[in-house]
Design a protein around this nucleic acid. Sequence first.
DNA 1: TATCAACACGAAACCGTTTTCGTTCGGTGT
DNA 2: ACACCGAACGAAAACGGTTTCGTGTTGATA
Lengths: 339, 339
Amino acid sequence: MKAKITLKDIARELEVSISTVSKALKNSEEISRDTKEKVQAFAKLYNYKPNNIAISLKNKRTKNIGVVIPAIVHHFFTTVIRGIEKYANARGYNVIVCLSEESFDKEVINMEMLANGSIDGFIMSLSSETQQKGDYNHLKEVTEQGIPVVLFDRITNEIDCDKVIIDDQMGAYVATKKLIEQGRKKIALITTDDYLSVSKARTEGYRKALLESELDIDESIILKLSTMEMDEERIRDFFDAQEVDAVLCVNEIFTVFSMRLVQKKGLKIPEDISFIGFTDGLLSKYANPSLTVVAQHGEKMGEISAQMLIDKVESEEEEESFHTKILEPTLVIRNSTIN
Amino acid sequence: MKAKITLKDIARELEVSISTVSKALKNSEEISRDTKEKVQAFAKLYNYKPNNIAISLKNKRTKNIGVVIPAIVHHFFTTVIRGIEKYANARGYNVIVCLSEESFDKEVINMEMLANGSIDGFIMSLSSETQQKGDYNHLKEVTEQGIPVVLFDRITNEIDCDKVIIDDQMGAYVATKKLIEQGRKKIALITTDDYLSVSKARTEGYRKALLESELDIDESIILKLSTMEMDEERIRDFFDAQEVDAVLCVNEIFTVFSMRLVQKKGLKIPEDISFIGFTDGLLSKYANPSLTVVAQHGEKMGEISAQMLIDKVESEEEEESFHTKILEPTLVIRNSTIN
DNA sequence: TATCAACACGAAACCGTTTTCGTTCGGTGT
DNA sequence: ACACCGAACGAAAACGGTTTCGTGTTGATA
């Protein structure tokens, strides 16, 4: 086991000072050609690599970014992480992933763990519990310390920081419009409670489309499930009680599960009933029939979030200007709607 | 913006030395009750938190672990990450995720980025390119430096380190046996090239089951796709050319895609043809029909990997003993096979 | 020959902790 | 009165770098 070599080791071995070694390795003009070559050769031979921690301590930059998300076993979030990782890596940053598991407390603990020097900035999407409580003090503390934060997807307006979202309202609006154009009259909405910023926006888009088309908004065919987890029972009850000819769901899982329920009842998709979901993941592609969905472009969101964060981290000036980037959702037409 | 406060700040303010502050905060016996109370009160008031980087530098422990995996948009890997994150967090560790995207070069670069002090150890699953090349020098270098490594799922025997896998051979064996018991005679296998350690083991299990049952091994109904990515064309051609009554696939996507192909040809699942896949993800649960699969227990694998790694990191002794933990796969019966 | 700039390098501070090893001071024992 | 002791605290080294600011040695110039 050969331990890593330090500047001090090189200096001792070559009988020069540590400063000389440091400068030589940086190709400083101060150092003679001879010495530089000697030092660099020696460093290469012994595979010298500077210690990241020491460098971080010196220039108060870790080149790490913290990503705090509610869940990872969700296609949307994994694509976002992928986008973040790709972009960050290209700029020499590493990504520390923390899972809040939809819990306020875990979100707070995670942020505290990272906020003491481990990272240069945060990229986050709020846990549902946090959005429900409306308590954002952990975010305030962090931003007040001067640590940059980028919020994506599940955001709040109570915090001044950069934000990246898709136009959820428009996504739902376009999807609902599509269903209406195809002659659907009783369009159900399966969503989660309104405290989730995205669900709220989607519900608004849904309502807006119905209003514009002078269709009634029937509250009894709007199903609000309490979390992002599946409450299979309630969905079952819902379809037992309601007769609808189209369904808009705020995620893939609700959609696929609902489709299977109505298929079991003998309905044909999309002839008898159409479905549109959110998130263009594997489920959508490989479901039977394949799903028409509102694509959220998670990878793009990740890239943009990472770019905004790193730009802010690396900008010297304390600019107090924050931007909200709104991406346009795309309707991906497949076979759960009439073509 | 209130910057974070340091020991030095507290010392200056309270007119004591830095050492006194440090000790007071640690409740050292050396410091008088009076001074301790003063210091602790002040620290609380100004929300003092020690700087992680400085501590890392001091005791050469970062409390970060590096996770290098080929992809994240795969249910299996996300569950592993979740297991790792959960366990690691509980022991006060953070998780840095790096994606090799199945590329050897990216794997090497990622490891080099992290191996210079950023992490205390690695948990990895090899990229397919790495397994194909059989070049493990980046792993050797890291282990020779004394950095602990735990390999999971896609492993190699050329590196001495802890390993966590499921018994892939047994998984495929049990699945194949199941199909045979149900009277299937022509059982196809859809896998990837043998350089992937897991695919190789699964192929062996498949062969073993056939041999034991005195069924012919028909090489023409073994389809080897070149990567983990989907080559839809070849699967299509395969099912056009072959008549089989059961299919074992090494992942969910192959399975679902194949099912849809044969369904389009008018075959009934599972009456005419049965399917078994690997990985118990969302696709399996929500496919139509739902999939019978070999569950890999990714979260458990993650937890165990994290435990092995952290135990090694925190053990003082330089024990050169490595263990391989083999988890038992579970056959989850659903509707793509006869019940 | 005294002066000076350029060159090549080293000393030391610094980042924020921890920890070892003094040091000071008042009190105790004899 | 003297040595000794323990309590309470501070100085300084150390972790591994970067960077500023000298400093000694040249050779050229006036």
